[in-house]
Design a protein around this nucleic acid. Structure first.
Lengths: 340, 340
DNA sequence: GTGAAAGCGCTAACAC
DNA sequence: GTGTTAGCGCTTTCAC
């Protein structure tokens, strides 16, 4: 492994110049820069990130803390972040918290404090004050995706508005008995997504002049399986069956479609179904949904972070960035059939 | 951020002793070790990984190169690896190659050479000789999951045997017209999984005395959607319909189940369906499958790597480790109905 | 079992 | 625009 000294020798300059030429910091004439780059290429030289980081304090590495890897939303955010980081020459160090709670503690007490990352992206995690404080004490920028986290720059989606949008779509089609499959309380811990989505649904109903019927709510765990069972329960009643289901995630909505089929109901003939996410499979199932763009969320988080790592003290930007969403109407929703 | 010097002062020892006490390398009396650990805890001291790595040459960091994040198999391997690494105090630096080819090059030419990782895990990637050579030149251990990669320690699953097992299950039930949904050629590039799985299927048929009927093969892209369309084609013929489908992945098998339903066929009444993976959703769909345990594959890869990082020159272990698999019979397979 | 001191391979003042 | 040099914060010989 060639070192900076050898490159300097081959290019006929000092190590300082090599450092400047290769990092782009500090003035170097075009001619010498070319020689240095050529020498580095010839020797297959790559800066040692440890030596560089130790001397400069810059790690070129971002830590991503994420609770799950095997769900579409999370892996998409991660993919977006990874992509944006790679493009900028940054490494991504992954901290997946899917195990027991002890992992979370060691990540925040040890791993993130090792001076290995310049900044941290926390996905769908509500950090404790202590956790935030630790990172701030190290002067490490932090951005939350899916927060909000008090005192931290976050990217959030307006869950209330999203739900309202989906529900209003069903109302506009003429549905009045609209059921909702939402999250259980355990999913409310880190970010109040289930609650907010339920609130949006209820607000849309109330605004349209309908009462909220508690019997039209069923909790599930955000999975296809969970949505299936919840929908079976909602649709299994012989009389006063809901004519539409709005599920708080596409996976639960897909489960609902499968449940409807198993009950011999046609979608959207007998029941309309809408979700949230625009999951990979939504198109395949013809699911009407409100898209949120997780890949872009990951990319955006990186951009914000890299901006913050620039020494340019521009206006720090607003603390909370609202993410875009979009209603995508497919074949799973339609006007209620007159017979219903 | 407290440094080693402050800890030394507080514990009343030299920095050398602090280093020894905290890293466990070199002799320290039990008493001083206790004092040092207490002092470190009191100051909230965490070793700077850069300084430590620069001085010692150990990074406590493993690079994982992986082609996809949003597929169950890959995210599960990643999760297993992450878990095992965290438990051992190692960081995981992720390199996802899902973008265009340029990413792959920069990962191997720059990112991995920055001296940031002790070793590399390559998941389902057939590395070029040049790529392997680069890593070996740096003396970085490398293990492949899903290889095999010539000259590299790999964990592989016997795809031929897995397919044979699934096919023999269908044969044993009395099926003779067994269709196969396999991968297209593009998926054969990095690891010959589609070909091997097809070979196992064909070998089982031939051994049982049946000819391979090319009309009973349909290619797809390993997705639910792809499997759906392939199955529609296979099952759409009025006469001589296959009585069973063996798909090279659970996602394609699930697509087949949905296709069968849409065609008004019952599973397993009219057609039996089997897959490979034991995907998250396999249980929900009652899918008979051959499980391969991707989480454990990730964990195992880490164990092998960490072993290799030990200076103990024990027997280096065999070059190719075969992974376990297991037939899981659920409700999607049964004896063919007499009427068929 | 413990301490002193010499680096690890770079970067960033500072001088020129 | 370029070279000189003093660290960055640890680990590791080597003495004791």
């Amino acid at each position: 492994m060639a070192g900076i000294e050898e490159v300097a020798k081959l290019a006929g300059v000092s190590t300082a110049t090599v450092s400047r030429a290769l990092s782009g910091r500090g003035p170097v004439s075009e001619a010498t820069k070319l020689r240095v780059v050529a020498a580095a290429a010839e020797l297959g030289y790559v800066v040692s990130s440890n030596a560089s980081s130790l001397a400069s304090g810059r790690m070129r590495n971002i830590g991503v803390v994420i609770p799950f890897l095997d769900r579409w939303f999370f892996s998409s955010v991660l993919e977006g972040a990874q992509h944006a980081l790679l493009r900028n020459g940054y490494d991504l160090t992954l901290y997946n918290l899917s195990g027991e709670g002890s992992e979370r503690q060691s990540v925040f007490e040890h791993f993130l404090l090792r001076q290995r990352v310049d900044a941290v992206i926390a996905v769908s995690l509500e950090l404790t004050e202590a956790e935030v404080a630790r990172l701030h004490a190290l002067d490490k920028p932090l951005v939350g995706v899916g927060g909000p986290i008090p005192g931290v720059r976050t990217l959030t989606i307006d869950d209330v508005a999203i739900s309202r949008l989906a529900t209003e779509h069903l109302l506009a089609l003429g549905h009045t008995r609209i059921a909702h499959i939402g999250g259980t309380h355990e999913f409310d811990l880190d970010f109040h997504l289930p609650t907010n989505r339920r609130l949006g649904y209820e607000a849309a109903l109330v605004d349209a002049g309908y009462a909220v019927d508690p019997s039209l709510f069923a909790p599930a765990d955000f999975s296809i399986k969970g949505g299936y069972h919840a929908a079976k329960q909602l649709l299994g009643v012989p009389r006063d069956r809901p004519t539409a289901i709005f599920a708080a995630s596409d996976e639960m909505a897909i489960g609902s479609i499968l449940a409807a089929r198993d009950l011999g109901l046609s979608v959207p003939g007998d029941v309309s179904i809408a979700g949230i996410d625009d999951h990979d499979l939504a198109d395949f199932f013809g699911l009407t949904t409100v898209a949120q763009f997780p890949r872009q969320q990951g990319e955006r988080a990186v951009e914000i972070l890299l901006e913050q790592l620039q020494p340019t003290d521009a206006p720090p930007g607003q603390a909370d960035t609202r993410l875009p969403y979009e209603l995508i109407v497919r074949a799973s929703t339609a006007r209620p059939s007159p017979s219903a």
